[in-house]
Amino acid sequence: MTARARAATIPVMTTLLIVDDHGSFRAWARRVLADDGYEIVGEAADGASAIEAVIALQPEVTLLDILLPDMSGLDVADAIDESTTVVLTSSRSEADFGDEPRLAGRFVPKTDLSGDALARAAARS
């Protein structure tokens, strides 16, 4: 099998970093998204370690919870935007954050989380 043929049958997996302060959510998100074809390269439980992980792991996509214990996910997004495609998520709805411009197009509610939803949001952002 040629490399080209392998590329066609086994798609190159998108690398993903999951940032959320709730361990059980991270665990289940990892299982669902891995099942949907993402390569989970790391997890982070707060903003500071998320920024470090992005530098260290260079994930293509970062699933970033907005409500983090040490800082706002929106501020983390500002810090890592250049290095990774950020998709913001929360157990709250988008409307709960008002007209936050940094949310536009790249927000996935936790209740709707799936590989497809993540891919769509990543494509928009």
Partner: peptide, 21 residues
């Protein structure tokens, strides 16, 4: 509510989706 029950229920939702697949 947000940190506790809501996160648990979100996990349940993801787990059930997983189980369904």
């Amino acid at each position: 509510l947000h940190d506790g029950a809501q996160q648990r229920l979100l996990s349940v939702a993801l787990a059930l989706r997983m189980a369904q697949r």
